[in-house]
Computed example of a mutant assay.
Amino acid sequence: MVAESRPIAVVAVTRVGSRLAARIAAALPEAEACVPARFAAEAGPTTTAYEGPVAALVRERFGCCRALVLVMAVGAAVRLIAPCLRDKRTDPAVVVVDDGGRFAIALLSGHLGGANALAERVAAITGAQPVVTTAAEVLDVPAADLIGRAFGWRIENPEQLTRLAAALVNGEPVGVLQEAGEPDWHDDPLPAHVRRYPDLAALCAAAPAAAIIITDRLLPATVLQPGWVVYRPRTLVLGIGCSRGVSADEIAVLVDETLAAHGLSPLSVRAVATLDRKAAEPGLVAFVRARRLELQTFPAAVLDATPGMERPSAVVKAAVGTRGVCEPAALRAAGAARLLVPKQKGRAATVAVARISA
Protein backbone atom coordinates (compact mmCIF):
# COMPACT_ATOMS: atom_id res chain seq x y z
CA MET A 1 0.00 0.00 0.00
CA VAL A 2 1.44 3.40 -0.90
CA ALA A 3 2.34 5.77 1.91
CA GLU A 4 0.46 8.74 0.46
CA SER A 5 -2.89 8.37 -1.32
CA ARG A 6 -4.32 10.54 -4.06
CA PRO A 7 -7.52 12.59 -3.63
CA ILE A 8 -9.73 9.85 -5.16
CA ALA A 9 -9.36 6.18 -4.28
CA VAL A 10 -10.93 3.67 -6.68
CA VAL A 11 -11.25 0.43 -4.73
CA ALA A 12 -12.07 -3.01 -6.14
CA VAL A 13 -12.44 -6.46 -4.60
CA THR A 14 -12.80 -8.81 -7.60
CA ARG A 15 -10.73 -9.66 -10.69
CA VAL A 16 -13.21 -8.02 -13.08
CA GLY A 17 -13.68 -5.09 -10.73
CA SER A 18 -9.92 -4.59 -10.53
CA ARG A 19 -9.65 -4.14 -14.28
CA LEU A 20 -12.55 -1.68 -14.19
CA ALA A 21 -10.99 0.23 -11.29
CA ALA A 22 -7.74 0.58 -13.25
CA ARG A 23 -9.69 1.90 -16.22
CA ILE A 24 -11.55 4.46 -14.12
CA ALA A 25 -8.40 5.64 -12.34
CA ALA A 26 -6.52 5.98 -15.63
CA ALA A 27 -9.17 8.46 -16.81
CA LEU A 28 -9.12 10.48 -13.59
CA PRO A 29 -5.69 12.12 -13.15
CA GLU A 30 -6.25 12.61 -9.43
CA ALA A 31 -7.28 8.98 -8.79
CA GLU A 32 -5.49 5.89 -7.50
CA ALA A 33 -6.71 2.36 -8.24
CA CYS A 34 -6.48 0.06 -5.22
CA VAL A 35 -6.88 -3.63 -6.06
CA PRO A 36 -6.25 -6.95 -4.25
CA ALA A 37 -2.62 -8.02 -4.59
CA ARG A 38 -3.54 -11.23 -6.39
CA PHE A 39 -5.19 -9.23 -9.21
CA ALA A 40 -2.69 -6.38 -9.44
CA ALA A 41 -0.59 -7.82 -12.26
CA GLU A 42 -3.49 -8.24 -14.65
CA ALA A 43 -5.11 -4.95 -13.59
CA GLY A 44 -2.02 -3.06 -14.69
CA PRO A 45 1.27 -1.62 -13.43
CA THR A 46 -0.21 1.69 -12.26
CA THR A 47 -2.49 0.12 -9.66
CA THR A 48 -1.80 -0.03 -5.94
CA ALA A 49 -1.96 -3.54 -4.51
CA TYR A 50 -3.40 -4.12 -1.07
CA GLU A 51 -3.19 -7.13 1.22
CA GLY A 52 -5.67 -8.14 3.87
CA PRO A 53 -9.30 -7.09 4.41
CA VAL A 54 -10.67 -4.37 2.15
CA ALA A 55 -12.37 -2.85 5.22
CA ALA A 56 -9.01 -1.64 6.55
CA LEU A 57 -8.18 0.00 3.23
CA VAL A 58 -11.57 1.70 2.95
CA ARG A 59 -11.31 2.98 6.51
CA GLU A 60 -7.88 4.47 5.80
CA ARG A 61 -8.87 6.05 2.49
CA PHE A 62 -12.14 7.35 3.91
CA GLY A 63 -10.13 9.40 6.36
CA CYS A 64 -7.61 10.88 3.91
CA CYS A 65 -9.30 11.07 0.48
CA ARG A 66 -11.89 13.54 -0.73
CA ALA A 67 -13.70 10.79 -2.68
CA LEU A 68 -13.95 7.03 -3.00
CA VAL A 69 -15.20 5.02 -5.96
CA LEU A 70 -16.08 1.55 -4.72
CA VAL A 71 -16.31 -1.07 -7.44
CA MET A 72 -18.57 -3.59 -5.73
CA ALA A 73 -22.17 -4.23 -4.73
CA VAL A 74 -24.03 -1.39 -3.03
CA GLY A 75 -24.74 -3.51 0.02
CA ALA A 76 -21.07 -4.30 0.48
CA ALA A 77 -20.18 -0.61 0.08
CA VAL A 78 -22.75 0.40 2.70
CA ARG A 79 -21.36 -2.05 5.23
CA LEU A 80 -17.80 -0.91 4.59
CA ILE A 81 -18.40 2.82 5.00
CA ALA A 82 -21.02 2.69 7.77
CA PRO A 83 -18.48 2.65 10.65
CA CYS A 84 -16.66 5.61 9.08
CA LEU A 85 -19.55 8.06 8.81
CA ARG A 86 -19.15 11.24 10.83
CA ASP A 87 -20.64 14.42 9.34
CA LYS A 88 -22.13 15.32 5.97
CA ARG A 89 -19.98 18.46 5.93
CA THR A 90 -16.72 16.52 6.15
CA ASP A 91 -17.38 12.97 4.91
CA PRO A 92 -15.88 12.28 1.46
CA ALA A 93 -17.94 11.59 -1.62
CA VAL A 94 -18.65 7.91 -2.22
CA VAL A 95 -19.68 6.52 -5.61
CA VAL A 96 -20.46 2.85 -6.14
CA VAL A 97 -19.95 1.11 -9.49
CA ASP A 98 -21.03 -2.47 -10.15
CA ASP A 99 -18.44 -4.90 -11.54
CA GLY A 100 -20.16 -4.78 -14.92
CA GLY A 101 -19.83 -1.01 -15.13
CA ARG A 102 -23.54 -0.56 -15.75
CA PHE A 103 -24.37 1.89 -12.96
CA ALA A 104 -22.48 4.69 -11.20
CA ILE A 105 -24.36 5.44 -7.99
CA ALA A 106 -23.81 8.56 -5.90
CA LEU A 107 -24.05 6.95 -2.46
CA LEU A 108 -22.71 9.53 0.01
CA SER A 109 -22.13 13.31 0.10
CA GLY A 110 -23.92 13.96 -3.16
CA HIS A 111 -23.90 17.73 -2.79
CA LEU A 112 -21.20 18.97 -0.43
CA GLY A 113 -18.80 16.14 -1.15
CA GLY A 114 -19.43 16.17 -4.88
CA ALA A 115 -20.58 12.55 -5.29
CA ASN A 116 -23.29 13.53 -7.77
CA ALA A 117 -20.77 15.20 -10.05
CA LEU A 118 -18.28 12.36 -9.60
CA ALA A 119 -20.94 9.79 -10.52
CA GLU A 120 -21.49 11.68 -13.77
CA ARG A 121 -17.74 11.65 -14.48
CA VAL A 122 -17.40 7.95 -13.76
CA ALA A 123 -20.46 7.17 -15.87
CA ALA A 124 -18.94 9.05 -18.79
CA ILE A 125 -15.75 6.95 -18.47
CA THR A 126 -17.45 3.57 -18.20
CA GLY A 127 -20.59 4.13 -20.26
CA ALA A 128 -22.64 3.52 -17.13
CA GLN A 129 -25.98 5.01 -16.15
CA PRO A 130 -25.40 7.66 -13.46
CA VAL A 131 -27.74 7.23 -10.51
CA VAL A 132 -28.41 10.39 -8.51
CA THR A 133 -31.12 10.23 -5.85
CA THR A 134 -30.82 13.57 -4.02
CA ALA A 135 -34.23 15.25 -3.98
CA ALA A 136 -33.07 18.59 -5.38
CA GLU A 137 -31.82 16.96 -8.58
CA VAL A 138 -34.81 14.66 -8.91
CA LEU A 139 -37.31 17.51 -8.43
CA ASP A 140 -35.22 20.15 -10.28
CA VAL A 141 -35.10 22.63 -7.41
CA PRO A 142 -32.05 24.50 -6.10
CA ALA A 143 -29.84 22.44 -3.80
CA ALA A 144 -29.67 24.55 -0.65
CA ASP A 145 -26.12 23.56 0.24
CA LEU A 146 -24.79 24.24 -3.26
CA ILE A 147 -26.27 27.68 -3.90
CA GLY A 148 -23.41 29.98 -4.91
CA ARG A 149 -20.76 27.38 -4.10
CA ALA A 150 -19.28 27.60 -7.59
CA PHE A 151 -18.68 31.31 -6.97
CA GLY A 152 -17.17 30.88 -3.53
CA TRP A 153 -20.20 32.12 -1.59
CA ARG A 154 -20.24 31.37 2.13
CA ILE A 155 -23.20 30.35 4.24
CA GLU A 156 -23.59 32.39 7.42
CA ASN A 157 -26.11 30.16 9.23
CA PRO A 158 -25.71 26.58 7.95
CA GLU A 159 -27.83 25.26 10.79
CA GLN A 160 -30.88 26.49 8.82
CA LEU A 161 -30.02 24.57 5.64
CA THR A 162 -32.12 21.54 6.52
CA ARG A 163 -35.28 23.64 6.91
CA LEU A 164 -34.62 25.45 3.64
CA ALA A 165 -33.90 22.23 1.78
CA ALA A 166 -37.12 20.69 3.10
CA ALA A 167 -39.16 23.68 1.97
CA LEU A 168 -37.59 23.58 -1.48
CA VAL A 169 -38.29 19.89 -2.10
CA ASN A 170 -41.72 19.92 -0.44
CA GLY A 171 -43.08 22.78 -2.52
CA GLU A 172 -43.51 25.20 0.38
CA PRO A 173 -43.23 28.98 -0.25
CA VAL A 174 -39.60 30.04 -0.49
CA GLY A 175 -38.54 33.66 -0.87
CA VAL A 176 -35.43 34.91 -2.64
CA LEU A 177 -33.78 38.24 -1.89
CA GLN A 178 -30.59 39.05 -3.79
CA GLU A 179 -28.80 42.29 -3.09
CA ALA A 180 -25.33 41.38 -4.33
CA GLY A 181 -23.36 38.64 -6.02
CA GLU A 182 -23.50 36.70 -9.26
CA PRO A 183 -27.06 36.68 -10.67
CA ASP A 184 -26.72 33.34 -12.48
CA TRP A 185 -26.55 31.09 -9.41
CA HIS A 186 -29.58 29.22 -10.71
CA ASP A 187 -31.04 28.83 -14.16
CA ASP A 188 -34.32 30.70 -14.55
CA PRO A 189 -37.14 30.10 -14.29
CA LEU A 190 -37.14 29.20 -10.63
CA PRO A 191 -39.76 26.67 -9.48
CA ALA A 192 -43.25 28.11 -9.05
CA HIS A 193 -43.08 28.02 -5.26
CA VAL A 194 -39.82 30.02 -5.19
CA ARG A 195 -40.47 33.75 -5.51
CA ARG A 196 -38.09 36.67 -5.76
CA TYR A 197 -38.65 39.79 -3.61
CA PRO A 198 -37.31 43.30 -4.33
CA ASP A 199 -36.19 44.14 -0.80
CA LEU A 200 -36.01 42.89 2.76
CA ALA A 201 -39.23 44.64 3.78
CA ALA A 202 -41.19 42.84 1.07
CA LEU A 203 -39.65 39.49 2.05
CA CYS A 204 -40.50 39.99 5.71
CA ALA A 205 -44.06 41.06 4.86
CA ALA A 206 -44.57 37.90 2.79
CA ALA A 207 -43.14 35.70 5.58
CA PRO A 208 -42.41 32.62 3.43
CA ALA A 209 -41.70 29.26 5.04
CA ALA A 210 -38.04 29.59 4.06
CA ALA A 211 -35.82 32.09 2.32
CA ILE A 212 -32.63 32.43 0.30
CA ILE A 213 -31.02 35.76 1.22
CA ILE A 214 -27.98 36.73 -0.84
CA THR A 215 -26.35 39.85 0.51
CA ASP A 216 -23.09 41.34 1.72
CA ARG A 217 -24.93 43.51 4.25
CA LEU A 218 -25.27 42.63 7.92
CA LEU A 219 -28.85 41.80 8.89
CA PRO A 220 -30.56 42.27 12.25
CA ALA A 221 -30.80 38.94 14.03
CA THR A 222 -34.47 39.62 14.72
CA VAL A 223 -35.25 39.60 10.99
CA LEU A 224 -34.12 36.05 10.31
CA GLN A 225 -36.72 33.33 10.70
CA PRO A 226 -36.24 29.54 10.86
CA GLY A 227 -35.35 28.30 7.39
CA TRP A 228 -34.05 31.68 6.24
CA VAL A 229 -30.49 31.09 5.05
CA VAL A 230 -28.03 33.93 4.47
CA TYR A 231 -25.54 33.45 1.64
CA ARG A 232 -22.52 35.73 1.54
CA PRO A 233 -21.28 36.43 -1.99
CA ARG A 234 -17.61 37.40 -2.25
CA THR A 235 -18.27 40.94 -3.42
CA LEU A 236 -16.14 43.23 -1.25
CA VAL A 237 -12.61 44.46 -1.75
CA LEU A 238 -10.58 46.05 1.03
CA GLY A 239 -8.19 48.75 -0.06
CA ILE A 240 -5.49 48.95 2.60
CA GLY A 241 -2.68 51.40 3.11
CA CYS A 242 -0.22 50.87 5.93
CA SER A 243 2.93 52.09 7.59
CA ARG A 244 6.07 49.99 7.75
CA GLY A 245 5.98 47.59 10.67
CA VAL A 246 2.19 47.53 11.07
CA SER A 247 0.97 44.32 12.68
CA ALA A 248 -1.64 41.94 11.31
CA ASP A 249 -3.68 42.49 14.46
CA GLU A 250 -3.76 46.25 13.94
CA ILE A 251 -5.03 45.76 10.41
CA ALA A 252 -7.60 43.20 11.55
CA VAL A 253 -9.03 45.47 14.23
CA LEU A 254 -9.36 48.39 11.80
CA VAL A 255 -10.95 46.21 9.11
CA ASP A 256 -13.42 44.55 11.47
CA GLU A 257 -14.43 47.83 13.08
CA THR A 258 -14.90 49.45 9.66
CA LEU A 259 -17.03 46.63 8.27
CA ALA A 260 -19.19 46.47 11.40
CA ALA A 261 -19.70 50.23 11.50
CA HIS A 262 -20.90 50.24 7.89
CA GLY A 263 -23.07 47.14 8.12
CA LEU A 264 -20.95 44.90 5.88
CA SER A 265 -20.18 41.22 6.38
CA PRO A 266 -16.56 40.06 6.68
CA LEU A 267 -17.67 36.80 5.04
CA SER A 268 -18.21 38.73 1.80
CA VAL A 269 -14.65 40.04 1.55
CA ARG A 270 -12.86 38.57 -1.47
CA ALA A 271 -9.63 40.49 -1.77
CA VAL A 272 -7.22 43.04 -0.37
CA ALA A 273 -5.66 45.64 -2.64
CA THR A 274 -2.75 47.96 -1.98
CA LEU A 275 0.29 49.77 -3.39
CA ASP A 276 2.79 47.44 -5.06
CA ARG A 277 5.62 48.48 -2.75
CA LYS A 278 3.57 47.12 0.18
CA ALA A 279 3.16 43.64 -1.33
CA ALA A 280 5.73 42.11 1.06
CA GLU A 281 4.84 44.08 4.19
CA PRO A 282 4.85 41.31 6.85
CA GLY A 283 1.81 42.45 8.80
CA LEU A 284 -0.28 42.90 5.68
CA VAL A 285 0.81 39.54 4.24
CA ALA A 286 -0.02 37.83 7.55
CA PHE A 287 -3.49 39.42 7.61
CA VAL A 288 -4.22 38.32 4.05
CA ARG A 289 -3.09 34.77 4.75
CA ALA A 290 -5.03 34.54 8.00
CA ARG A 291 -8.24 35.62 6.25
CA ARG A 292 -7.49 33.52 3.14
CA LEU A 293 -7.95 36.47 0.82
CA GLU A 294 -6.51 37.41 -2.56
CA LEU A 295 -3.88 40.16 -2.60
CA GLN A 296 -3.76 42.57 -5.53
CA THR A 297 -1.22 45.36 -5.92
CA PHE A 298 -0.93 48.38 -8.19
CA PRO A 299 1.82 50.87 -9.08
CA ALA A 300 1.56 54.36 -7.64
CA ALA A 301 0.93 55.91 -11.06
CA VAL A 302 -2.07 53.63 -11.65
CA LEU A 303 -3.55 54.42 -8.24
CA ASP A 304 -3.00 58.14 -8.64
CA ALA A 305 -4.87 58.09 -11.97
CA THR A 306 -7.88 56.24 -10.56
CA PRO A 307 -11.10 58.28 -10.54
CA GLY A 308 -13.44 58.17 -7.57
CA MET A 309 -11.09 59.02 -4.69
CA GLU A 310 -13.02 60.84 -1.97
CA ARG A 311 -10.25 61.70 0.46
CA PRO A 312 -7.03 62.36 -1.48
CA SER A 313 -3.95 63.44 0.45
CA ALA A 314 -1.06 65.66 -0.61
CA VAL A 315 0.98 64.17 2.22
CA VAL A 316 0.49 60.64 0.87
CA LYS A 317 1.31 61.89 -2.64
CA ALA A 318 4.61 63.29 -1.44
CA ALA A 319 5.49 60.09 0.42
CA VAL A 320 4.56 57.35 -2.07
CA GLY A 321 3.72 59.06 -5.36
CA THR A 322 -0.07 58.76 -5.29
CA ARG A 323 -2.76 60.92 -3.67
CA GLY A 324 -4.23 57.84 -2.06
CA VAL A 325 -3.65 54.13 -1.52
CA CYS A 326 -6.62 52.44 0.12
CA GLU A 327 -9.36 54.21 -1.86
CA PRO A 328 -7.97 53.86 -5.40
CA ALA A 329 -6.70 50.34 -4.66
CA ALA A 330 -10.19 49.24 -3.60
CA LEU A 331 -11.75 50.89 -6.67
CA ARG A 332 -9.24 49.35 -9.08
CA ALA A 333 -9.45 45.84 -7.71
CA ALA A 334 -13.25 45.92 -7.58
CA GLY A 335 -13.68 47.51 -11.00
CA ALA A 336 -16.00 49.96 -9.27
CA ALA A 337 -16.78 53.59 -10.01
CA ARG A 338 -17.52 54.56 -6.40
CA LEU A 339 -16.65 53.50 -2.90
CA LEU A 340 -18.92 51.80 -0.40
CA VAL A 341 -16.75 53.08 2.43
CA PRO A 342 -14.26 55.93 2.02
CA LYS A 343 -10.90 55.99 3.76
CA GLN A 344 -10.97 55.10 7.45
CA LYS A 345 -7.86 55.80 9.49
CA GLY A 346 -6.19 53.70 12.15
CA ARG A 347 -2.93 54.34 13.96
CA ALA A 348 -0.77 52.65 11.32
CA ALA A 349 -3.19 51.71 8.55
CA THR A 350 -6.06 52.96 6.44
CA VAL A 351 -8.88 51.01 4.86
CA ALA A 352 -11.57 51.66 2.24
CA VAL A 353 -14.18 49.30 0.82
CA ALA A 354 -15.56 48.86 -2.69
CA ARG A 355 -18.05 46.38 -4.13
CA ILE A 356 -17.06 44.27 -7.13
CA SER A 357 -19.04 45.20 -10.20
CA ALA A 358 -21.60 42.54 -11.17
Rank of each mutant, 00 (worst) to 15 (best):
I81W: 02
V96T: 06
C64M: 15
R86C: 12
A27N: 06
D98V: 12
A76P: 05
R15F: 01
G100N: 06
A67F: 04
I81T: 01
H111Y: 13
N116R: 13
R15E: 14
L68N: 03
L112T: 15
G110M: 08
E51V: 11
T48D: 14
R66P: 06
L85F: 13
C65L: 09
A41G: 10
A37Q: 11
I105C: 08
L70C: 13
A25E: 00
R59Q: 15
L68V: 00
A76Y: 13
A77D: 11
V11P: 01
A104P: 00
F103L: 14
T47I: 03
T90A: 15
R79S: 06
A56W: 04
R102I: 09
G52K: 02
A22M: 08
A27L: 10
A43R: 00
R102D: 14
V58Y: 06
R15G: 06
C34R: 07
A41R: 14
E60N: 06
G100S: 12
L108S: 15
L107Q: 07
G110V: 04
L28C: 08
A56G: 10
R19I: 06
F103W: 09
N116W: 07
A76F: 14
T48S: 15
D99Q: 11
R38I: 12
V95Y: 05
V69H: 00
E32K: 09
L80Y: 02
T90Q: 14
K88A: 02
L68H: 01
V74Q: 01
V16S: 08
F103I: 11
I105Y: 09
R38S: 03
R59I: 04
L80M: 10
G75M: 14
V95W: 04
N116G: 13
T46A: 15
V94Q: 08
